[in-house]
Design a protein around this nucleic acid. Structure first.
Length: 801
RNA sequence: GCCCGGAUGGUGAAAUUGGUAGACACGAGGGACUUAAAAUCCCUUGGCCGCAAGGUCAUGCCGGUUCGAGUCCGGCUCCGGGCACCA
């Protein structure tokens, strides 16, 4: 036997598989389909580090397992290549983004090609390919057509360093997620997608998904549903009224003032009534100039200004209440106005204390005891109503509805989710396919004119003026209006980086079900994605946008199922050994190419899957990888033992147990324990003098998804002419797994005192008797009779004395 | 502040969901082979007591339920993640 030469073997099979096309997706496959998808990477300039392929290894093992189990498998790979990261890289290195992306993709592909993946490269996707983004634009046009894309001039988040507007999802603690700059508020003409129309469905349908609970919870938090009531407060001596949103209508009798956000539109109309307008105006100006961080800073002292001369009427009891503007009231949430109940809300309490406003308690947990304790902070707990007229004594929860109805309010639901700011003032994105015409307004580019190609441009650097670099290309901008034929101008904003990734998984879809999203190949109905593998950092960005678009396409009738990704598996990070993120910046990057060179791709695969639970963050260890290599070498050396016809009952038994465990572990993405079981089997076979070819063949079949190169080589050496990766996955024989004897544990008072081998079929009575007969037990009992004996068949006997 | 996770040897971790805690692997120590080294193989490896047989403590901390708790319940501490002046 030759020694295990990973370089020779991996090169040989890499080339052979490419030639034979063993991983080509078969359109004609019968039986169930399995669509296994990785989140597409950005082809960044840094190249791959060993952390990147971890998720791809998992999906690779899983999809190979599915294929061997007779499933038709779709497993494409692609590049999510539009957006700021690619563009910023290009600017920094002074090359055109398109050139940079091409170069980076080439590099990524080279690196991936060494790792033994079963991708079908004929189905490679590139979101920056005009033939791809024509459909991204098509989806946008449909959104526009249905009124779900609208133009807005509201102030939005602006990153002064990236020089573009951003969506709420692109912020982290009020800073730009890409570059860390503090974002500003800036009024800007924007295209915005009405994702909030889908808030309820995005929330509701989470329940049925096989996703990690933590991701679902993140999305629930992000959507932020709360049930409450809209209640009108009339303004004294005018026809105006303030609509407030509250989740605590039960506390309405305790309202002692009303607060508006500084941006509230009613202020214009109230202006004539406001006696201290100058002061009010100054406050409005000040809050406009504050960043989100300044306004929402923790423990910030409350500020505000009373609108002198304006009084609101509490609809519950007719009381006249002062009205304030205060920047703790957010313009974009609820109705931009609140009723303030200092007794039962912490913020209102703080504000009331500062402005010396009355506190009126209307919820008491000790009702009907009239001696409610004097509050020294806001009481937000349960209780019954007091000081609330006819509602006194009612449970707070019940009173919410009753009080709302009493004052003619409306029960409503509000969400924290905000509409998706969809334009970027940058070059490297899909052009938004709209035309501005003086006569017709905003006109859609007709579908037959798609794609609207991103033009070549001399300077693609952001302008910072609020216009995209495209605005400077007159010959591209100026077009005829498709409606009236008059002078028109193209929309020059581009789409955000998340546009292309919101539907790439749909690139493969049955043309019969939708003529629009026709793929370059004729496809069977692959979607929805059966297993989607990627990082948890996409919880409230990519994964929520993709669900939104999917649901929209469902409403259009383009897809016939409600959710895009049935099962989601999160991959845990691989950090450097110092625990830090791998990055060129820290100089701690481990390149997979080097590991493949030194140990081989199969070793890298086994090691990364063995490191720990798949979804957990682990630190790379250049010490531990040797364990994976030793395991493979041991498996390789087992060839020497193929001299016998029979492997013995114990080996067979262990093999079948292993088949069972590895199968269920792959299915559950528990690769660490699957490999551990393979190691146990290998160690055991290593102790045998001889092995049968049958046993060895079954072993390398279940090893194949983990170490595809080596198992293919061994399979060939067994005399096989076809690929092991198209073999049928072994089934375990339940009869073989059944044990005839097991080790019975005998405990006294819960402590292990003896162990003995017993027959599996012994009854509880038999075991009871057997345990008490043991000489060691008799010795320890020293004549005492047990108080109680607990027998657990198959496990233990516990004698209580 | 609210909502999710998590904490087990020197290290990564396992434990059939209430039944032998530490599988598997790395590292470490000792030995074999070798002129030597590498590779490989064998033994030891949670703490303490003991020559040993064995005993005893031990799954972040404190309590509880149970014949029996890493696992269930109550109360904390620390770490990671999401949300957060969201009415």
């Amino acid at each position: 036997m030759a020694s295990y030469n990973h370089k020779k073997i991996e090169k040989k099979w890499r080339e052979a598989w490419q030639k034979s096309g063993v991983y080509k997706t078969s359109d004609a496959l019968k039986g169930s389909k399995s669509y296994v998808l990785d989140m597409f990477p950005y082809p960044s300039g840094e190249g791959l580090h060993v952390g990147h392929p971890k998720g791809y290894f998992a999906s690779d093992i899983y999809s190979r397992f599915k294929r061997m189990n007779g499933y038709a498998v779709l497993r494409p790979m692609g590049w999510d290549a539009f957006g700021l990261p690619a563009e910023n890289f290009a600017i920094k290195n002074k090359i055109h983004p398109r050139v940079a992306v091409e170069k980076n993709i080439k590099r990524f592909k080279e690196q991936l090609s060494l790792l033994g993946f079963n991708y079908d490269w004929e189905r490679e996707i590139n979101t920056t390919d005009p033939e791809y983004y024509r459909w991204t634009q098509w989806i946008f046009l449909k959104l526009f057509e249905k009124g779900l894309a609208y133009e807005s001039h509201e102030p939005i988040n602006w990153c002064p360093s990236c020089k573009t507007g951003l969506a709420n999802e692109d912020l982290e603690d009020g800073k730009c997620e890409r570059c860390g700059s503090v974002v500003e508020k800036r009024p800007l003409r924007q295209w915005v997608l009405r994702i909030t129309d889908y808030a309820e469905r995005l929330l509701e349908d989470l329940d049925g998904l096989n996703w990690p609970e933590s991701i679902k919870e993140s999305q629930r938090n992000w959507i932020g549903r709360s049930e409450g009531a809209e209640i009108d407060f009339k303004i004294k001596e005018t026809d105006l009224k303030i609509k407030v949103f509250t989740t605590r209508a039960d506390t309405l009798f305790g309202a002692t003032y009303v607060a508006l956000s500084p941006e509230h539109e009613l202020l214009e109309e109230l202006k004539p009534e406001i006696k201290n307008w100058k002061e009010v105006e100054k406050y409005i100006e000040e809050s406009k100039n504050k960043t989100e961080i300044e306004r929402t800073a923790e423990n910030k002292e409350k500020t505000g200004v009373e609108l002198r001369g304006v009084k609101a009427i509490n609809p519950a009891n007719g009381e006249e209440l002062p009205v304030f503007i205060a920047d703790y009231v957010l313009a974009h949430y609820g109705t931009g106005a609140t009723m303030a109940v200092p007794a039962h809300d912490e913020r209102d309490w703080a504000f009331a204390k500062k402005f010396k406003l009355p506190v009126k308690q209307v919820i008491c947990q000790f009702y009907p005891d009239p001696k409610c304790p004097v509050l020294d902070e806001a009481y937000i707990g349960d209780g019954k109503l007091v000081g609330s007229g006819k509602f006194n004594g009612m449970e707070a929860e019940k009173a919410k509805r009753a009080v709302t109805e009493f004052v003619g309010g409306k029960i409503t639901v509000k969400y924290k989710l905000r509409d998706w700011v969809f334009s970027r003032q940058r070059y490297w994105g899909e052009p938004i396919p709209l035309i501005h015409c003086d006569n017709c307004g905003v006109v859609a580019v007709p579908e037959s004119y798609l794609p609207v190609k991103l033009p070549e441009v001399k300077s693609y650097e952001p302008t910072g003026t609020g216009e995209s670099p495209l605005a400077g290309i007159a010959e591209w901008v100026n077009v005829k209006c498709p409606k009236c034929g008059g002078e028109g101008k193209r929309e020059t904003n581009t789409m955000p980086q998340w546009a292309g990734s919101s539907w790439y998984y749909l690139r493969y879809i049955d043309p019969k079900n939708n003529k629009a999203l026709v793929d370059k190949k004729k496809e069977k109905y692959w979607s929805p994605v059966d297993v989607y593998v990627g990082g948890a950092e996409h919880a409230t960005r990519h994964l929520i946008y993709a669900r939104f678009w999917h649901k929209f396409l469902y409403d259009l009738g383009v897809v016939n199922y409600k959710e895009p990704f049935l099962r989601l598996q999160n991959v845990g990070l691989i950090t450097a050994k110092d625990g830090k993120k791998m990055s060129k910046r820290y100089g701690n990057v481990v390149n997979p190419d080097d590991i493949v060179e030194a140990y081989g791709a199969d070793t890298l695969r086994v090691y990364e899957m063995f490191m720990g639970p798949f979804d957990q963050t682990v630190a790379w260890s250049s010490e531990s990888i040797i364990g994976a290599r030793r395991f493979l070498e041991k498996a390789w050396r087992l060839q020497d033992k193929l001299i016998g016809a029979d492997s013995g009952e114990n080996t067979k038994k262990l093999l079948h147990k292993t088949i069972q465990k590895v199968s269920s572990d792959i299915d559950g993405f528990r690769f660490n324990t699957a490999i551990s079981q393979l190691m146990i089997l290998t160690n055991s076979m290593d102790e045998q003098k001889e092995l049968s070819r049958e046993v060895y063949g079954l072993f390398i079949k279940i090893l194949a998804p983990f170490a595809p190169h080596m198992s293919e080589e061994l399979w060939e050496q067994l005399g096989n002419k076809t690929s092991i990766h198209l073999e049928k996955w072994p089934e375990h024989d339940p009869k073989l797994i059944k044990e005839e004897v097991y080790e019975l544990v005998i405990q006294i008072n819960g402590k292990v005192r003896n162990k003995a081998e017993v027959a599996t079929d012994l009854s509880e009575e038999d075991l009871h008797e057997f345990a008490l007969k043991q000489s060691r037990v008799r010795e320890l009992l020293a004549g005492q009779s047990p108080k109680k004996v607990i027998v657990v068949r198959g496990r233990l006997v516990n004698i209580v004395i």
